[in-house]
């Protein structure tokens, strides 16, 4: 009924200290971790093919650079607030520790703690012999009969008390019953008086301040807490696992469910679906679905949207996560055409280039679209074909007169990564064949090459370069070796609102029915070192002599297989499609057979 | 709101969505077929009358083909197909209608290919694949059409799928090699 309040200010500092530490320690740890790892990832971004990143910055329009700067500033503002809180929090902690240390009341309470080792003046790890010898020495000093006669009664009683304590200390370390008491209650005499109370000073609870405190609690428990919980709950409920709004996801699912196979899947179709996204409506409630569609087409056709330019940039930035969400749903519905067109749409938005037979060339900077159709007698559609011509001729084909611009365009064109398949197989870790009902994965060895590089047949890369590590670690986790590769560098995307590095999406299709069998695997780690090599197809004359396989870096891609291998023995055919989300051209598309044997 | 015209016996929904429009067309077609049916004891058995008409037109086409009159043959086959689309009622056995159409389409494909109408042939082949015909000869023709239309990437996808369903097919293998060569050239 009646509580003791913290009159002497002994307990509330500990309470506040505990609460602060619970918040500050993980927050500080998180912040330090981000600082350390954030620095590291920037480092790898800088190592890899920085040409694309540099060019991307160079060719980006003023509005895009402003947009990027704004979003970086927003992020750092929040970080500054967090940092401020951490600094303020630790300052309060330091003050509290100092307060506790200097508070007499707390010190007094602390001295009531019974410490036998301190009383006997020995270390906590002393043996029984040392304990006994220490006791004998001290009892000689403090025994009432041994005390000097000159001491005052006060001094005497103090020393006698000390002697009692020393005896108790000795007993609590040696005598069974006393030791039990000490271990159980922290004192040899058994349970001491304990007090329970409220760790708050009385004035907060008893007087007029109490109404404020009650109001504070009511506000906290009745208003603030439910508000935050309901806001968090509705946020979680409204977003799917892939990070898109549930209404957008259900719209996409509905479109896929009602999809008629006679309908041709085009860029316009995907853009139309995209413009119905709930995220857009929430960002710009005053704009219509048709406006969103127009803005997306503006982005693809590199058209300025007037006073809706900023809206366009925000929508384009958001469409990245929406397209990945749609891709996930499309693969769940096993629809290959929509899956591939979704990735192509992302390319179109990232490069601001429409899907046409000439997309590979139109994604380059400084290209004059008219000259592509008129500039040359041969119909050139691919980067690979482009590099069969001399630089000057390329300038004519692309319609670039300025030599500096031509050099920049050529450096971008030769830095766009293309994947060349060297080896592909189904692998079961630890086995030499794929056995029935085993769990295989798809192991690809690829070469990241430039369109400028001369073609060479995959068998010119010796088998030794394509072997995986054969140790126990790699059998336990076959995918760990892919993580040793560097992250992808910045994409050349001067028309995209944010800096990005993108990825490759790997789709697996069952050849029997032509349908996708699992959700896409995203590949965001590959070495681009080969792109720096000057193995120009126009200058290499003798392939056998000039090609040195050991100078090339082999990329490692591992795609998990979502089902166990079939029960029956035989050959089963799968189509593997690896599409880039960033550039037109560097995709892989091949058939792989799974030989299931005993 | 559903509207019914007692004279034409047709249903209508103003401002209907695409899906509702489709349903309406289906119902109305069924109604028209029923109204036009003279035999009160009709069955799914295909009407011999229609079969005869369609067959006549088609055989006309085959004759013209033998006489090397390709353009006319194509026209006749088109007429035969159109006749089937118009005359066949919705309740006549699906299996029969499907086979009839597929058979005529296969001939149409070959006639188109011979005359260099590759896009037409491709669409017909797409139709055949979509309606369940996944035999090697479909893959062979589709690969060939795609190559002629310079769509080498799609041609590769088709020929590889064809080979995975029929790995020993010689013609498909030849097409695969040829397409790979053209693709390499396409990519410089």
């Amino acid at each position: 009924q009646s509580y003791d309040y913290d009159e002497a200010s002994e307990t509330w500092p500990f309470f506040i200290l505990a609460v602060l530490c619970v918040v500050l320690v993980p927050l500080t740890a998180m912040q330090l971790w981000e600082l350390v790892s954030g620095g590291k990832s920037d480092q790898t971004l800088n190592d890899q093919a920085s040409i694309l990143g540099e060019m991307s910055e160079k060719y980006a329009s003023r509005e895009i650079l402003e947009f990027r700067a704004k979003s970086v500033a927003k992020k750092s503002k929040w970080l500054a607030k967090r940092n401020l809180f951490i600094i303020a929090g630790w300052t309060v902690v330091a003050y509290l520790i100092q307060y506790i240390g200097s508070s007499e009341g707390i010190q007094d309470a602390a001295t009531l703690l019974f410490d036998p080792y301190a009383l006997l003046d020995i270390s906590a790890s002393s043996t029984d012999r040392e304990v006994r010898s220490a006791y004998r020495k001290l009892s000689v000093k403090f025994h009432p009969d041994k005390l000097s006669k000159d001491l005052s009664s006060e001094q005497r009683s103090v020393l006698e008390e000390q002697y009692v304590l020393i005896t108790k200390a000795y007993k609590s370390l040696t005598d069974e019953i006393t030791r039990e008491n000490y271990l159980k209650y922290g004192h040899p005499d058994g349970p001491q008086a304990t007090s329970h109370g409220i760790a708050l000073p009385k004035f907060l609870v008893d007087s007029s301040a109490s109404t404020l405190v009650i109001l504070g609690y009511v506000a906290l428990l009745g208003i603030v807490l439910p508000y935050f919980v309901s806001r968090w709950w509705s946020r979680t409920q409204s977003v799917t696992k892939k990070g898109i709004h549930v209404k957008s996801a259900s719209y996409f699912s509905n479109r896929l469910f009602n999809f008629k196979p006679s309908q041709v899947v085009t860029l316009d179709l995907i853009v139309n679906w995209l413009s119905h996204a709930e995220e857009f409506k929430l960002m710009f409630p005053e704009l219509s679905v048709e406006t969103f569609e127009t803005l997306l087409h503006d982005q693809i056709n590199r058209k300025h949207s007037g006073n809706l330019e900023n809206a366009k940039l925000r929508i384009v930035a958001k469409s990245n996560v929406l397209l990945f969400g749609l891709l996930d749903i499309a693969t769940t519905f096993r629809n290959l055409e929509i899956s591939t067109m979704t990735i192509d749409t992302l390319k179109a938005i990232v490069q601001a280039t429409s899907i046409s037979p000439y997309s590979q060339l139109l994604q380059l900077p400084n290209v004059n679209p008219e000259s592509l159709t008129e500039g040359s007698v041969d119909d050139i559609r691919t980067l690979g074909k482009l590099f069969t011509y001399e630089d000057a001729k390329i300038g004519k084909i692309l319609g670039i007169d300025d030599s500096t611009k031509l050099q920049e365009t050529l450096s971008v064109a030769s830095s766009i990564p293309h994947l060349k398949l060297i080896r592909a197989e189904f692998k079961v870790p630890g086995e030499s064949v794929v056995t029935p009902q085993s769990t295989p994965h798809i192991s690809l060895k690829v070469l990241v090459r430039s369109a400028k590089h001369k073609f060479f047949p995959p068998n010119m890369i010796p088998d030794e370069m394509c072997l995986d590590r054969d140790d126990f670690e790699s059998m336990k986790d076959p995918f760990a070796s892919t993580l040793e590769q560097p992250r992808l560098p910045q994409t050349f995307a001067p028309y995209f609102p944010g800096k990005r590095s993108g990825c490759w999406c790997a789709l697996v299709v069952l050849q029997k029915d032509g349908k996708v069998i699992q959700t896409p695997m995203l590949i965001d780690r590959l070495s681009f070192e080969n792109l720096n090599k000057d193995f120009d197809k126009r200058t290499v004359k003798n392939l056998e002599e000039e090609f040195k396989p050991e100078e090339w870096v082999i990329g490692n891609i591992k795609i998990p297989f979502s089902q166990p291998a079939p029960e029956e023995k035989g050959d089963f055919f799968f189509r593997v499609i690896v599409k880039s989300t960033e550039y037109f051209g560097p995709d892989l598309d091949f058939t792989l057979s799974m030989a299931v044997r005993d | 709101t559903l509207q019914y015209d007692a004279n034409s016996k047709l249903l209508d929904v103003p401002d209907a969505s695409e899906d509702i429009e489709m349903n309406l067309t289906q119902i109305n077609k069924l109604t028209q077929d029923l109204v036009g049916e003279t035999n009160p004891n009709f069955t799914p058995q295909p009407r011999d009358e229609s079969t005869a008409m369609i067959k006549k037109l088609f055989e006309n086409g085959l004759k013209q083909l033998q006489q090397q009159k390709m353009a006319e043959a194509l026209k006749s086959v088109n007429l035969a197909i159109e006749m089937a689309q118009r005359k066949r009622a919705s309740w006549e056995a699906f299996a029969v209608q499907l086979q009839e159409l597929q058979f005529m389409m296969k001939n149409r494909v070959d006639l188109c290919l011979v005359q260099g109408k590759f896009m037409d042939a491709l669409q017909d082949l797409d139709f055949l694949q979509n309606t369940g015909l996944t035999t090697s000869d479909v893959f062979i023709r589709k690969t060939d059409s795609l190559m002629k239309l310079k769509q080498y990437e799609q041609a590769r996808a088709e020929v590889e799928r064809g080979l995975s369903l029929d790995p020993t097919n010689a013609k498909l293998r030849v097409l695969h090699i040829e397409n790979t060569r053209r693709l390499a050239e396409y990519n410089g």
């Binding site: 041709v264 | 896009m119 309606t131």
Partner: peptide, 22 residues
């Protein structure tokens, strides 16, 4: 049968779309 008819009738539209694309 109606679905088959619809798919057949879509051929013309598909031809247009692909011609434009390519």
């Amino acid at each position: 049968n109606q679905a088959l008819k619809r798919r057949f009738q879509a051929i013309l539209l598909r031809k247009e779309v692909f011609s434009k694309q390519w």
